[in-house]
């Protein structure tokens, strides 16, 4: 008997003749009090992200040129003039940077390690938990480019901000490679005290626009 058949037979044997379980009660909140993009949610999101030690830049405008200025303003004090960006981000977002690498999938990990920053969009953001979701698409890029560079500048449009985790998960396609980001890389492994900055990007700059 193959291991597969053996394990499945063991499971069926262990469960007995008529395994049943009661229906799952879903009395928890499926939606928050506020609609996507509500000002209350933006305030909550900013509070959560700052709690995680992310840098938040709030701009009222949502045109691509204003976003591009905010990206450059965020990177300038860090003395970063070079960034990689996925093919689907508007060119204006990186228009003020001296050196822009548009990802064509050819850069390997070592090449990415020499690029100090990455500029991407996002697909949905959950305010209550301060969680930004990337889906590996044209706006977010393949996973490696948002991982290896040390600074991640991520654009979150206010209209994509929802309140709760269930609302966030409903808006993404599960078969895409998803990355849920809640602040910069961190660890609690030393005396269960949280410190930021381990293997992922140590700087997370979130530009909340609109």
């Amino acid at each position: 008997m193959s291991a597969r058949d053996d394990v499945l037979a063991r499971i069926r044997g262990a469960l007995g003749a008529d395994p049943t379980a009661p229906p799952v009660p879903r009395a928890y909140r499926q939606h928050g009090e506020y609609a996507a993009g509500a000002p209350e949610l933006v305030l909550q999101l900013v509070d959560r992200l700052e709690d995680y030690r992310a840098t938040v830049v709030r701009i009222g405008a949502d045109d691509d040129d204003s976003i591009g200025r905010a990206v450059a303003d965020a990177l300038a004090p860090r003395e970063i003039g070079q960034a990689v960006t996925p093919p689907g981000t508007p060119r204006e977002w990186t228009g003020w940077l001296a050196d822009v690498v548009v990802d064509d999938g050819s850069l390997d990990a070592k090449a990415l390690d020499r690029i100090p920053a990455v500029v991407t969009g996002s697909v949905v953001t959950i305010a209550e938990t301060g969680t930004i979701v990337l889906d590996g698409g044209e706006l977010c890029g393949r996973r490696a480019i948002t991982l290896v560079p040390d600074t991640h500048v991520c654009v979150v449009r206010v209209s994509d901000v929802v309140q709760t985790v269930p609302e966030g998960l409903q808006r993404v396609d599960p078969v895409r490679p998803l990355t849920f980001i809640s602040g910069p890389s961190a660890t609690s492994d030393i005396e269960l005290d949280r410190v930021e900055g381990v293997h992922g990007p140590r700087q997370l700059v979130v530009i909340v626009s609109g």
């Binding site: 959950i126 209550e128 938990t129 301060g130 590996g136 393949r142 599960p174 490679p177 990355t179 980001i181």
Partner: peptide, 16 residues
């Protein structure tokens, strides 16, 4: 409130 990173993947994604 949420851990810094959660990754999900489904089989193999070409190019990623």
């Amino acid at each position: 409130r949420m851990n810094p990173y959660t990754s999900t993947w489904t089989g193999v994604v070409p190019g990623d």
